[in-house]
Design a binder for these strands. Structure first.
Lengths: 341, 341
DNA sequence: CGCAAAAACCAAAGCGCTTTGGGTGCGTGC
DNA sequence: GCACGCACCCAAAGCGCTTTGGTTTTTGCG
């Protein structure tokens, strides 16, 4: 069933039917109703590609997720982010297309995307420091919103991010207040912008109390369970073992917990752990009382907000470089306690 | 830069340029080279929507991921599956679109998808028993491949699945061989087809040794850490506590591990655990020696195979209802040992 | 009642591509 | 020298929609 058939069925012109369905005023209410009813009854849905050709808009936004060849790790946060974004897209009648792009092919990919016109805008995932994608997208004139930020990029751009610095500063201060002095940081890859900022927050809090960060108590790596376990195990074997850990992901924290158990210690008593918690649907941080004390911020909400911002820019009803900083809650769970002496 | 401009620039007709770029034989090699070079130099990429309109193909496949209103849980497996599928799509020049669809809106969604023609085929995720989507898609004539299977559906359809029954049968037999008799099953939601089959495998193995399954040792629910913890904690408190657990996901197994620790027991000695392991990139089951004994099957590979199958069907070079059963490896880790007496 | 303005509708062009149904010029065989 | 086939290329139609620039009908008002 296409527009032509529908209009013939109604004894109207394609013009009128099109206008009736798209809410233009040049058509009487009675006719509009008749058209809308018939469209529904006959399961008419306008062909997306034809519509896109005629309007010059794809009615789709692209999510480009980078896959770095060495570790080939898919961000676990992705599913929830997409789900949040999707809420906004569905409401606005937009489609969501995903491309997994190997590191290095990104410039080419964005160019093709623009030329082929299959997305009206893009969400940029996993920004790194000095990320070259941003200036490229600005140059291409393709609307985009970055999930996260990219330090050292001085062209203005739109982003939605959590306050990583403040979150980790607060978490560190909380541990300091509990009397901890040897606080380890098990961070994500510090080429990623978020990890860089978290480290800055951590170091800032230490510095504010006159403490120098100890390089032996800082790790940077892919945030897996095994990584958390190994890092914590090594540190706990030391003479001056840390009494508290700060981790960048719940998965890593679980690895730390395992190392704590393996060492015959008790979480929340002998060793404290604070983690960042993305509030993932499949990895809830406990039930009523959180397992881990955590800096929490829903990545699903971030997805929704990013998508709304991008749609706003595509539609032109939002100032172009918009930004949105989300604060993380510091929620107290069972994994922290006063420092043992 | 569009075809018209490119052809004018080359002093050729649009026809010739189009044919040169699409590999048709009616154009001389010399001309083809000239065209291809110019296209590359001028960053020409054909407009997807125009191409789609003309050919009647969307050059895109849709992934419809169901979101059940009550639990709103995004399948953690999704990112890896998509990454695998994407490998195949990129190779074939296809786009990947995702729609997150609330339970209940699915029929309408598939119909619109077909009518609007924005996907040449679909991957169906999370099949449930008696899943109505399958007959709907057959009726709509939209090519599709199901990731998993749907019991009680008797129309033939294409699927890619792991042998859930055999995997859990083997895992159970392994535990029985180690002397375990009270083996608990912490399963996924048994309205999901995979969970149903896993249970059947588990019960089958017990029955083969003349053991009746104990309803008190079987749970079915969303596969979270907390769920695994709670289920295991309750069971371990019993008089006749299980000596072994079978879990459907690594995340759940981690919850079980926590309950085992909390009870003052040691994993692999006092209590054995076998889990299914989807080999997710961000949730590796240990390093050299797996943490958990597990039935392992890469969901990323399943994604690639599903996508290849779907593309084959869309292209017409694959018999329509194709199926592919993947066997899971039973890998021995540190979480199993002989039953204590 | 007559006329202008507003309301309701329509024909056709155009979006950028593919593809049909040719046309032109060249070499070949008889 | 002529018909024929082949290699190469082209003009134009068509995909399903929107939108421009009308035309026709209705309404309002003196």
């Amino acid at each position: 069933m296409n527009l032509k058939e529908l209009s013939e069925h109604l004894n109207l012109s394609q013009t009128t039917v099109s206008r009736a369905l798209n809410g233009y005023p040049e058509v009487s209410e009675a006719t509009r109703r008749r058209v809308v009813d018939a469209a529904r009854a006959l399961h008419y849905s306008p062909n997306t590609r034809a519509k896109g050709l005629a309007t010059g808009r794809a009615m789709a936004v692209g999510h480009v997720i980078p896959l770095s060849g060495q570790h080939e790790m898919v961000n676990p946060v992705f599913g929830d982010f997409i789900t949040g974004a999707s809420e906004a897209y569905v409401k606005a009648g937009y489609d969501l297309m995903i491309s997994v792009v190997e590191d290095g092919c990104e410039e080419q990919h964005y160019r093709r995307m623009k030329a082929m016109g299959n997305a009206d805008g893009v969400i940029v995932h996993g920004p790194r420091m000095d990320d070259p994608r941003i200036s490229l997208l600005v140059e291409l004139g393709l609307p985009f919103v970055v999930h996260g930020r990219a330090s050292n990029v001085n062209t203005p751009y739109s982003w939605v991010d959590i306050n990583n610095n403040r979150a980790f500063r607060r978490a560190t201060e909380f541990l300091l207040d509990l009397g901890h002095r040897r606080i380890a940081l098990i961070n994500g890859l510090e080429s990623m912008d978020f990890a860089f900022r978290r480290r800055a927050g951590y170091e800032g809090a230490l510095a504010a109390r006159g403490l120098a960060p100890d390089p032996d108590l800082m790790r940077s790596g892919e945030m897996t369970e095994v990584y958390g376990h190994r890092a914590a195990r090594e540190m706990l074997r030391r003479d001056a073992a840390p009494t508290a850990f700060l981790t960048s992901s719940l998965i890593t924290a679980i690895g730390v917990r395992r190392a704590v158990h393996d060492a015959g210690l008790t979480l929340g008593r002998d060793v404290s752990v604070i983690t960042h918690d993305d509030d993932l649907s499949y990895l809830k941080n406990g039930e009523h009382i959180p397992l881990f004390t955590a800096t929490r911020s829903s990545v699903r909400v971030a997805g929704r907000i990013s998508a709304e911002m991008l749609l706003g820019q595509i539609g032109g009803d939002m100032p172009s470089p918009a930004t949105r900083m989300l604060e993380a809650d510091l929620i107290i769970g069972q994994s922290t306690g006063p420092a043992p002496h």
